[in-house]
């Protein structure tokens, strides 16, 4: 079972929101969708969900188009959180899960299990408006996963959470993946993506600027980062062609270079100068790539 997106395009009036995106997500895979605000992530999600029809292109799951007949296959955590503020946790999950075709006793059993897992069993009969934002988010998450969907779409699942709750949710996501759920998620927090995803797509103004296996992307990504510690002045490195950025601090320097060949050249240049305490070529962080590719977004 595969989620296949083929060359989708979506225009609103004259504005192109998404253009020429294609991707495949295998069953049980965790797929990351990155991009600055307004890059087209939410529009893409809405097209996968069938809330919007693509202007061109196809989206299929297991060979068939996703439609309201197959809505119970999908779980969705929207970026803008939304629940009925006046309803209790139980009442609204019962309603939302009935819409997914679940039976009431099953729903109640699942609610209790998840509330226990999130260590908040006492919330069952509380109204949503009485809960803190982080706890509301747990309920929101439950609304996306209670019916055991095959595809789970998480739009910014960890934003606004404290580290404890964030980890709790992250564990839950990992467990779902292990159980075979196909997960597509977006995040501004690159660390989460690096931790969780194998494959990613990076969007900018509706187009894919980077796509593929995260490790390969990093390895093959030209830009490298070198940290050096030496007993002498390192500022002269700035004059070597191919150095993009030099950041000198008390105990050394971090040099961003265009590719590995430049790194070798730097190594030669400083070994001529004398003893080197540390010389390490690192792959760029996703954060660096993001800023390089998607540009200007400093959410992290």
């Amino acid at each position: 079972m595969t989620l296949v997106i083929e060359n989708i395009r979506k225009t609103f009036d004259n504005h192109v929101a998404v253009e020429g995106i294609s991707l495949k997500v295998q069953k049980g895979e965790m797929f990351g969708m990155l991009g600055a605000n307004g890059a087209g992530k939410t529009t893409s999600f809405r097209m996968i969900l069938g809330l919007l029809d693509p202007t061109e292109g196809n989206i299929t799951w297991d060979g068939d188009r996703l439609s309201y007949k197959r809505t119970k296959l999908i779980g969705y955590l929207p970026e803008e959180r939304g629940l009925f503020p006046k309803l209790t946790v139980k009442d609204q999950l019962i309603y939302l899960m009935k819409l997914k075709g679940m039976k009431k006793p099953d729903i109640i059993r699942e609610i209790r299990q998840w509330l226990d897992r999130f260590q908040v069993p006492e919330y069952e009969n509380k109204k949503i408006e009485e809960l803190s934002k982080g706890n509301q988010q747990k309920i929101q998450f439950m609304a996306a996963v209670l019916h055991k969907p095959e595809i789970l779409i998480l739009d910014e699942p960890f934003s606004g959470l404290d580290p404890v709750n964030s980890d709790m949710l992250k564990d839950a996501v990992r467990d779902l993946q292990k159980a075979g759920t196909t997960i597509v998620f977006s995040s501004h927090q690159m660390r989460n993506v690096e931790e969780l995803c194998e494959d990613i797509i990076m969007l900018k103004e509706g187009k894919a600027v980077l796509q593929g296996n995260l490790r390969e992307i990093k390895r093959s990504y030209g830009m490298k980062s070198i940290s050096i510690r030496a007993d002498y002045e390192l500022a002269f490195l700035r004059s070597i062609p191919g150095v993009m950025n030099l950041d000198v601090s008390k105990d050394g320097a971090v040099v961003k270079v265009e590719n590995e060949r430049v790194a070798e050249e730097i190594f030669r240049a400083i070994s001529e100068k004398g003893f080197v305490r540390k010389f390490e070529v690192e792959e760029p962080s996703l954060h660096d790539i993001f800023i390089d590719k998607a540009g200007g977004d400093k959410d992290e």
Binding site: K72, R81, G82, A143
Partner: peptide, 15 residues
Amino acid sequence: EKSSRVMEIIVSSVN
């Protein structure tokens, strides 16, 4: 339902 944003979840389940 729109202003509480629950609408988006509902319409992802039901036409």
